[in-house]
Design a binder for these strands. Sequence first.
DNA 1: GTGAAAGCGCTAACAC
DNA 2: GTGTTAGCGCTTTCAC
Lengths: 336, 336
Amino acid sequence: MADVAQHAGVGTITVSRALRSPQQVSPQVRERVRAAIEATGYVPNFAAGTLKSQRSRMVAAIVPTLRSAIFAETVDALADGLRARGLQLLIASSGYSSEAEESILRTLLGQQPVAVVLTGTHHAPGVRALLRARRLPVVETWDLADDPIDRAVGFSNRAAAREMTLALAARGHRRIAFVGTPPGIEQRAAQRLAGYRDAMAELGLEADVEMLDDLGVSIASGERAAEALLARRRPPQAAFFVNDVAAFGAVQVCQRLGVAVPTELAIAGFGDFELARASNPPLTTVRIPGALIGATAARLVLERLDGDAVPDGAPARDAQARCVDLGFEVISRRSA
Amino acid sequence: MADVAQHAGVGTITVSRALRSPQQVSPQVRERVRAAIEATGYVPNFAAGTLKSQRSRMVAAIVPTLRSAIFAETVDALADGLRARGLQLLIASSGYSSEAEESILRTLLGQQPVAVVLTGTHHAPGVRALLRARRLPVVETWDLADDPIDRAVGFSNRAAAREMTLALAARGHRRIAFVGTPPGIEQRAAQRLAGYRDAMAELGLEADVEMLDDLGVSIASGERAAEALLARRRPPQAAFFVNDVAAFGAVQVCQRLGVAVPTELAIAGFGDFELARASNPPLTTVRIPGALIGATAARLVLERLDGDAVPDGAPARDAQARCVDLGFEVISRRSA
DNA sequence: GTGAAAGCGCTAACAC
DNA sequence: GTGTTAGCGCTTTCAC
């Protein structure tokens, strides 16, 4: 930077300002600095700036995995929204482990991010304390929070699953099975199961839960679950799958085995991925706002950065005001 | 850190060493430091360490997009491999723009990454100079490079498409169409088109190229392209799609219109995504090593970090030695 | 195995 | 609109 300053015949601080807040520098000087940067091939060292100012240009994000297209979509939208303001994304995936989440967070915090974006609202014990203590803007995504650490954006997985279940019952089905993921791993899946149970209890029907043999991210696991369902002495009338990928597999199995969908077995999914429309018959499912969650998370981060400091008290009564509910939509197609 | 040192009754440098190279510190002292860190809730400031040592704990990666499951898979595998050694991933997506690539790279370099992972082998003009000048370990992914900046890992998209085309011809097809993406955007897609042209020229057949109306990431675009193909006065006998997602859409259209696959129209895809097996009939396609590319990129980065400095001369004759060719495999299923 | 001193490259605070 | 001074929190270097 000293080189650049000398080339341009100005002080280093002027170079710094020309880069960070150009409007504070006269156009002529700005142009001289620009030319000097070009001539010297200068690349700023953000580590120094971060150290001095205690503010980096990075936002840390933790996702369970990027292998699931839906999280990748959210992260991509988040990155887009942040880049518009010159913020970089520092990403870590926790592999669904909430122990890993805390240690990953500690590492990320060491990079002095200006904000943190988390997936879900259930976190390892130390996470909340770590973040609150630093008064860092935090956005929790993909579900609503009763008591958000700071801000949250998502939709109620529980309410969505409840509504889908009620919709299946409204079509006259009584024996409605829920096909979910092994418990204790995916929080969103657990919320969907809870919503299904809510609905079945309201309806006075007996809950019937079948497990996928993986996280439901594969068509094959849906196929295997559907086979298990159909092999029963008395198969259910409807099967509500925790996501579209597995539900798609189930439809394929029915087609193969000559089981009529929806007359013999109604099938519903969750997500409204493109696969849902491509399925034959197309899937009845719940549309969820994946990319919008990312874009909104970016907006919330920027608002926080522009606005007031993060309150440490965080009175519970405004919990709702700090959650953005993006909603969901039950999409009726021919599979149920 | 001074706090921690005082708690533990040692100098700050000992705290630093206990964290970065524990074997240099006696077990008793190490334990006292650990306890002091716990007591004080200390989180290291990497910006300071990076500034002094000129080495961060970050690896920068640029991908065209995370929305495509295949890049997300690679990035996830890369992140896993790096985390094992305490390295964080700094990710940016370029949105397929190679102008954006250079400016994004400049920003990322400011964070003092210890290595850079790029997608593809065609880069904006300044990219190579910027990286070579810094002698930074660089890994280019997803295609083979004639003259890699440093290291490269992938497979030959061109050879893979050529082989698939030859396989279609071997089944007796003469009028083989290639359904690709608009030119100048996706480099991998361009290589695949080139491979198709290679094969058709070898076979003495006339090339026939149809365009998808997006980047071929959607089932719907494949459906539209298939409709266009079938609406022709004389449709091709076989259609080779630039990826499985679009090919899947084409199969769906044929099913809907009562066009027999493969007898009336043979269909091939590229990627061997899970969709390929789920399709009915299942897709003939090319298996490509998405996750392995990420894992190998991580390995190459770590080797580079452990080993010698990056040579600046980079003699062309060892270009091949610096490329890892992970290969591909033509998978014959019933769609062609 | 441990410590003391110096300084990485930038920006906050304050001057002019 | 521009410059001067000081120091962010670590790690390097050198000493013991």
